[in-house]
Simulated assay, not measured.
Amino acid sequence: MSLAPCLQKVIKNEGASYVQAPFFLSTCKFMERYLTSNEIKSLLQLSNRELKHMRENGLLQFKKVKNRFLYFVPSTNSILNYSLGEQLINWHQKKHGSKISNSPHNVQTIRSLEKLVWDLLLPIERHFGKETVHVTYGFTSTELKRYISKYSSANTYPALDQHASYEKNAKDNSICSRGGAACDFYVLGMPSSDIVKFISKHLEYDRIYYYGADRPLHVSVNLNESTRHLQIMRVSEKGRRYPSKKAFGEAAIKLAKEL
């Protein structure tokens, strides 16, 4: 089963029109997750006036908590169109200077990438500050994997690293045996050790690979049961990466405190 990910939508109200394009269509009709006013404005490219109009005319589903409005993402849109989701998809343009299509085609892939934003990247951004999260290695489509394998394959492990999520190769076999979705990222001005401590204690994750306080962090989520696996990686004198200490669940929280 596949889902055409790129659509274009024009919304008109009271003489004003704005375009949301291209955007990913959510795989969920109803999500028990909310965005703040600033976040929903960023996602839908709305002004304060347009947001107020849509709320008052029943065009957006929301709830009010004390003095704050919290909004559902419309089923015709997706959190992947938020800035963090765009980083997951478009990261390769900056890293590789490539215009290769990097759109996910598998519904499970889209669900996993949405989960990665909702459950990890967005809570981290909310905790450490807007525009502090920078994705250095995100989703890898079949087309992009082929390009990377040819021109920049060092330290990549597509069969295990979850960057390809549920996408399939030309032989219709899953690229990664683990499913889920993953990205490498850093938080501006923060050592990665602090991010590991925050994630392991407060967030739901599948795997964390820690390469050092000054290196991007590799994190993943899974649609099935999460392993909550923290793996410390070291680098040999010859520059080769190798696994060091590891822990799972509550033990991972204790290991993170040692970093």
Score class of each variant (00 low, 15 high):
Ser174Gly: 10
Ala251Ile: 04
Ser174Ala: 09
Lys145Thr: 09
Lys168Trp: 00
His163Pro: 01
Cys6Val: 09
Glu204Gln: 15
Ile253Asp: 02
Lys99Asp: 12
His202Val: 11
Phe128Ser: 02
Gln20Glu: 09
Leu116Asp: 04
Thr27Arg: 00
His127Ala: 14
Ser165Gly: 06
Cys183Thr: 11
Ala154Glu: 10
Asn155Ala: 13
Lys64Leu: 11
Tyr18Asp: 06
Glu250Asp: 11
Lys41Pro: 05
Met190Gly: 06
Leu3Pro: 00
Lys95Tyr: 14
Gln87Glu: 08
Leu7Phe: 05
Pro22Asp: 04
Tyr147Cys: 05
Tyr71His: 07
Cys28Asn: 10
Tyr151Gln: 14
Thr27Gln: 01
Glu50Asn: 14
Leu84Ile: 06
Val117Gln: 00
Glu50Pro: 03
Ile253Tyr: 03
Leu80Pro: 00
Phe69Gln: 14
Gln87Thr: 09
Glu32Val: 08
Ser101Lys: 06
Ala164Ile: 04
Leu3Asn: 00
Ser83Lys: 07
Pro5Asp: 01
Asp206Tyr: 08
Phe24Cys: 00
Glu50Val: 07
Glu50Ala: 12
Val221Gly: 02
Thr76Lys: 08
Ala154Val: 15
Ser17Met: 09
Val221Ser: 03
Glu86Tyr: 11
Gln231Glu: 12
Tyr186Pro: 03
Thr109Arg: 00
Arg33Asp: 04
Ile110Pro: 00
Thr142Glu: 05
Gly239Arg: 09
Ile253Ala: 03
Gly85Leu: 03
Gly239Cys: 09
Phe62Glu: 06
Phe128Leu: 04
Ala164Cys: 10
Ile124Phe: 03
Ser152His: 15
Ile11Leu: 14
Ser236His: 08
Lys130Leu: 09
Asp214Met: 12
Ser152Gly: 11
Cys183Lys: 04
Pro22Ile: 04
Lys9Ile: 14
Gln45Asn: 13
His163Lys: 02
Ile208Glu: 01
Ile40Asn: 03
Glu131Leu: 08
Ser26Gln: 02
Gln231Phe: 06
His218Met: 10
Phe139Ile: 01
